[in-house]
Design a protein around this nucleic acid. Structure first.
Lengths: 107, 107
DNA sequence: GTAATGTGCAACCTGTTGGTTGCGCCTAGT
DNA sequence: ACTAGGCGCAACCAACAGGTTGCACATTAC
């Protein structure tokens, strides 16, 4: 899955990862241990999810003393939304053409 | 994964499924065998992907004689885009507040 | 210095997933 | 009537993903 948009969708496919994103959107930053406290999984599981999100470019991490802070980086969401909009637009154009065609055949 | 948005992201996470969506956006309709001809997998694999897309509400199927035609139904993409926009907007609002805060402390 | 807190890494387990093959059932041509 | 094309279902397989436990390393607090 080297394609960037694919990585984003793959990251968004897991409910726990989506929750992490929501939590990060609400706070400024958070640590893996904080996030694990609000989820029914261990800290290591959350760390794995954060790594996946980082791999998709949705999250940045910086070390601050003995804790590592994670922060949202929502830019790649734009590319994913573009892909969806493009698919939807193509379909819509096709639908419009079909409607026009039908109208011309049955005025 | 009962949440509708989750189903959409899950469906979009696979590159072959995304290709199927692109192909369906370009044509009016297509059969599983047609789509399998443009992909390096068997017809049954494509049929499974189409079932997943149907489960996510992204595709409709209708039987026409001895072949079943699949057609795009991009409506659920809207909900998924809304989710992404909301996360991005929350983050953006947080960022704007932070900028304002910093400016007020260092005029 | 030592205890506590927080992290990262590695091994391991288990369920799911993408894929295949094989078969049986319709439908459409001839 | 019979043959060929197209689908669906079930079994099976290898690989991966989400999760856990255990441990070693770094950093703060006392």
């Amino acid at each position: 899955m080297s394609d960037p948009t694919g990585r984003v969708f793959d990251a968004l496919a897991d409910p726990n990862r989506r929750y992490v994103l929501e939590a990060l959107a609400a706070r400024e930053t958070a640590t893996a241990t904080e996030l694990a406290a609000e989820l029914p999984v261990t800290r290591q599981a959350v760390a794995k999810h954060l790594a996946a999100l980082n791999h998709a470019g949705l999250v940045e991490s910086r070390r601050e003393g003995r804790e590592t802070l994670y922060q949202l980086t929502p830019a790649p969401l734009g590319a994913a939304m573009d892909w969806m909009a493009s698919v939807g637009a193509d379909w819509d154009a096709r639908l419009a053409a079909l409607r026009k065609h039908l109208r011309s055949r049955r005025p």
